[in-house]
């Protein structure tokens, strides 16, 4: 559906192949195409601008002049630059859950995938790492939000349980009750799944900050939709300002969006992307892989083989 970047750059680079050197003018023409491609992938404009400036600096240089296929070399520079910006090839994606009971707080906009992701990570921790996990919903607002988490916990076997629902408690009280229950119950990890909130709802943001203060989470994950547009920077920045975030999770990577939000959010917060959500089902969770996401943003899966073919 989207033109692969190579197709777009084809015209520009065809003329260059064999000539062996890139002028600033050539690079600028190519970078204009890359800029459009990144914007179509929903990378936020300020992030695009910074990125393009850096790529230009690298591209108009010896590296390119010496390379045999300058056009492909620019694509490689772009790709490597994206991988870098996304945290590099061996970005740290492990969760800090070694000090029981370790608290993991989940936060984000309404409907971003917090509750589902909570259950997915719990599944992973209980099955792979043999952790005993407690799930607590602090969402006293959305109809049946607590029931949703309880139903998911029931699907996860004996090592994952959900905190019994007590009607009428405030989120901060539920957080305290969850911590207490985790200590008494010998749980290794306790998840606090919070209600969705907009970043400008002052009361709700203050509530989230209070929960974090009470629970002192080892990990606070901002869960965001990979289909998010330019607003990704705004949301990431505002949540990062108010909460002690330690990482990002991008959901709905199973869609056909190009996932530029991942880059925007990583760039504006510097936080590692820990997981990618890849489906509604509870096994739809992948560890983050910068190369895969970079290829996706550029609209082509396998950049490396492409460069090698060139």
């Amino acid at each position: 559906m989207f033109d692969a970047l190579t197709d777009r750059l084809g015209g520009i680079f065809d003329g260059l192949t064999g000539r062996g050197a890139l002028s600033e003018k050539d690079v600028s023409a190519a970078l204009r195409e890359i800029r459009v491609a990144l914007l179509e992938a929903d990378v936020a404009l300020p992030v695009v601008k910074d990125f393009i400036a850096k790529v230009k600096e690298r591209a108009v240089g010896e590296e390119v002049i010496r390379s045999v296929k300058p056009g492909q070399q620019v694509i490689k520079i772009v790709h490597d630059g994206l991988v870098d910006l996304l945290g590099g090839e061996d970005a740290e994606t492990r969760l800090r859950v070694d000090n029981p009971p370790s608290v993991i707080m989940m936060a984000g906009l309404q409907g971003s995938g917090k509750t589902t992701t909570t259950a997915k990570i719990a599944k992973r921790l209980s099955e792979r790492d043999k952790k005993k996990v407690l799930l607590a919903s602090l969402d006293v607002r959305r109809p049946a939000a607590m029931e949703q988490l309880a139903v998911l916990a029931d699907q996860l076997g004996a090592n994952v349980t959900s905190l019994p629902i007590v009607q009428g408690q405030m989120p901060a009280e539920i957080a305290r009750r969850a911590l207490q229950a985790a200590k008494l119950g010998g749980h290794d990890v306790v998840f606090l799944d919070t209600a969705g909130r907009t970043s400008i709802d002052e009361q709700m943001m203050a509530e989230a900050a209070e929960i974090a203060k009470i629970a002192q989470p080892k990990e606070s994950l901002l869960v965001a939709d990979a289909l998010t547009g330019q607003d990704a920077v705004e949301t990431a920045r505002r949540f990062h300002e108010r909460l002690p975030l330690t990482g990002l999770v991008l959901t709905r990577m199973d869609g056909d969006g190009r996932g530029g939000a991942a880059l925007s959010m990583r760039a504006v917060t510097g936080l590692p992307i820990k997981f990618l959500g890849t489906g509604e089902k509870l096994d739809g969770l992948d560890a983050f892989d910068a190369k895969r996401v970079a290829g996706r943003i550029l609209g082509q899966g396998d950049i490396v083989s492409l460069v090698e073919r060139a």
């Binding site: 559906m1 179509e40 992938a41 929903d42 906009l109 409907g111 939709d225 289909l227 998010t228 547009g229 330019q230 607003d231 949301t235 869609g255 056909d256 969006g257 190009r258 530029g260 939000a261």
Partner: peptide, 11 residues
């Protein structure tokens, strides 16, 4: 449609 969505809304 969710107001936070980017270009994917078109698809």
């Amino acid at each position: 449609l969710d107001a936070t969505v980017g270009q994917n809304a078109l698809s």
